[in-house]
Simulated scan of single mutants.
Amino acid sequence: MADITRRLGAHHLRSAPTAHIRHHKRGRLVHDGPGLSFWFRPLSAALSEVPVDDRELAVTFHARTADFQDVAVQATVTYRISDPALASSRLDFAVDPDTGSWRGAPLEQLGSLLTESAQQNALDVLARTPLAEALADGVSSVRERISEGLAGEPRLPATGIEVVAVRVIAIRPEPEVERALRTPARERIQQEADRATYERRAVAVQRERAIAENELTSRIELARQEQELVERRGVNARREAEENAAADAVRAEAEAARTERLARAEAESARTVGEARAAAQASWLAAHSTVDAATLHALAATRLAENVPRIESLTLSPDVLTGLLAKLGQHGGHHGDARS
């Protein structure tokens, strides 16, 4: 929109570089070009402002496919006004000299023209295309058809309009149809996910089996080593027992030989001692065989006295004393007889 200011009954217009200004004064073209700035009188001026920059027009419409399915088409048409003079002569781009705003709605007219032309071309191609194909390859085919249709539309050059680009954003079916179409794909994805899950579980089971087999192998090897260790310990214990038994046998033999030698020595010593005692006894008997009986009794009493324990006190009863005195008297009589 042009910027218009008022000073002392005169108006000043300043436009943007992307706006083409046409100023007519009393039917004569006074100013014509983009980005102009000038003074004018509103009562004698006719102003037109034509945008010459690229414009984006969002186009949304419904179409029906060959299998009678409703789809929504979202597209964007980029255009520009290449001939401002021709456009201003065909569409109302006049601006209010006081406010600088358009008196009409020229861009809405251009939008309707482009939307109707794009929709007509899109309907033609989608009406011959099944839904599945339209969803798969319809974007490119619809874009090409709209571009070709707009390029061949005679009203656009006659209005000074140039189409720069056409973009088809999406072709979408109705929500119920879209959910129905998504179901097989979701099922396939779910099946792939389930298969991946099963494969992962199978791999996990195989790994667990391998781990279990390794553990079993390790246990078997450990048991074998323990068995070898037990056998080795048994062999060592048996060898140690045999060596101990051999050592005990050697020790027993040595002890038996020593005991035998000691017994022989003791027997020899005992025999020697016995022989000496026998000889002494024989000599003793031989020496006493010539001695009379009284002498032998005296010797026996002496020997008995030597071997009798020490007597601290002796109590004699009258009977014993009487008998002892009687015996002493008898012995005295015998000695007297003998002396006589």
Rank of each mutant, 00 (worst) to 15 (best):
A2L: 00
I4N: 12
H11K: 09
H12P: 13
L13M: 12
L13Y: 07
R14L: 09
T18M: 03
T18L: 15
H20M: 12
I21S: 06
I21A: 03
H24T: 14
V30Y: 10
P34S: 10
L36M: 10
F40D: 05
R41G: 14
L43C: 11
S44Y: 00
E49N: 09
V50I: 15
P51C: 13
P51I: 10
D53F: 07
V59A: 09
F61H: 10
A63R: 12
D67A: 15
Q69A: 07
V73H: 15
T76S: 14
T78M: 07
Y79R: 11
D83L: 04
A85P: 00
A85E: 11
L86V: 09
R90E: 04
A94C: 13
P97D: 01
R103P: 02
P106V: 08
L110Q: 05
T115P: 00
S117Y: 00
Q120H: 12
D124W: 04
L126C: 09
A127E: 02
R128N: 08
T129V: 03
P130M: 11
A132L: 04
A132K: 12
A136S: 09
A136W: 03
V142Q: 05
V142D: 07
R145F: 08
S147R: 05
E148Q: 11
G152W: 00
E153Q: 14
E153H: 13
R155C: 09
P157H: 01
E162Q: 03
R167T: 07
R167C: 05
V168T: 01
I169T: 09
E174G: 09
E176I: 02
E178P: 06
R179G: 03
A180W: 04
R182Q: 14
R182W: 03
A185T: 01
R186Y: 02
R186D: 08
R186F: 12
T197Q: 13
R201H: 14
V203R: 11
R209P: 05
A210P: 08
N214Q: 12
I220W: 05
A223T: 11
Q227L: 05
Q227W: 12
Q227P: 08
L229K: 11
L229A: 14
R232K: 03
R233F: 15
N236P: 01
E242H: 02
R251F: 08
A256L: 06
E260I: 01
A267Y: 01
A267S: 05
T272W: 15
A276P: 01
R277H: 06
A280C: 07
Q281G: 02
W284G: 11
A286G: 03
A287W: 02
H288V: 12
S289K: 12
A293H: 09
A298G: 07
L299D: 08
R303G: 07
I311C: 14
L314R: 13
T315K: 02
L321P: 02
T322H: 04
K327T: 04
L328G: 05
L328I: 07
G329S: 15
G329E: 12
G332N: 11
G333N: 00
H334C: 08
H334M: 14
H335K: 00
D337I: 01
D337M: 14
D337R: 05
